[in-house]
């Protein structure tokens, strides 16, 4: 075995990081779904743990929101994640989670870059069961999220069920740069689909999306690979 005497140098210098943020609606209307949501998040975690490539390239954070937002899982590799049991309550406002994402990604990125890591463009999966109580999130999108105001803009893929409307989800999906691999997209549950079905379908497609994103690293240009609009059973998908 060959050992170098200077072993205090930063371990992660040059490491590629592909950051994913899961923004989950935990407002009062989600109360009856929390067991299923917690179970789905656990399954997603297990699927990510099962892929060594994801563990080497991807970091995931979970932000919950109702009328406010908080980071319940800080950005970390799947093998370092601890998922708390989520509970529901409160109203629904989309602006706080977008603000929380913006603040946390700025901090996460600064921290990782100070460690010498290479941080690639973030991706948001936005999950909601309803309509926001106000439209202030649109101003937040414009001032903090979009390319015009944020060079480190994220890709956003929105998932909605129950009372969520396509019209609202469309305003969250981002960006719209023409080519299909540079377009946000949104998915809405088909009529009659149970919450269990929807969450199960989402887990599979999120894990595939994250793996495909990580796999693009071999092309030299890691890219976020969002699900194709027809990729989620029980949900209809559209490009923004």
């Amino acid at each position: 075995m060959t050992e170098h005497s200077e072993d205090r140098k930063p371990e992660g210098e040059g490491q590629i990081i592909m950051p994913f943020y899961l923004l989950c609606d935990v407002s009062l209307s989600m109360t009856g779904d929390m067991d299923e949501l917690n179970k789905a998040l656990g399954q997603l975690h297990q699927q990510l743990l099962g892929e060594p490539i994801i563990n080497d390239l991807v970091m995931l954070s979970v932000i919950t929101f109702n009328h406010e937002a908080r980071t319940v899982v800080p950005l970390a590799a799947p093998e370092e994640l601890n998922l708390p049991a989520l509970s529901a309550g409160g109203g629904t406002d989309f602006s706080p989670p977008l603000r929380e994402f913006h603040a946390r990604f700025s901090t996460d990125r600064d921290r990782l870059k100070s460690e010498g890591k290479r941080v690639y463009r973030p991706c948001i999966y936005f999950l909601t069961d309803g309509e926001p109580n106000n439209t202030s999130y649109q101003a937040t999108m414009a001032s903090l999220i979009t390319k015009e105001k944020n060079a480190a803009y994220p890709y956003i893929c929105a998932f909605g069920f129950r009372d969520a409307s396509a019209q609202t989800l469309q305003t969250l999906a981002y960006p719209d740069f023409g080519e299909n691999n540079k377009r946000g997209r949104y998915f809405i549950a088909k009529d009659g689909a149970s919450i269990t079905d929807v969450l199960q379908a989402m887990v599979g497609v999120l894990a595939r999306s994250i793996l495909q994103s990580a796999s693009s690293a071999s092309a030299g240009t890691p890219l976020v690979a969002l699900p194709e609009p027809n990729a989620v059973s029980k949900m209809g998908g559209s490009f923004v």
Partner: peptide, 11 residues
């Protein structure tokens, strides 16, 4: 890339 980015690799 790792040669440029990581002192451990350079050493």
């Amino acid at each position: 890339n790792p040669l440029r980015d990581a002192e451990q690799v350079r050493d």
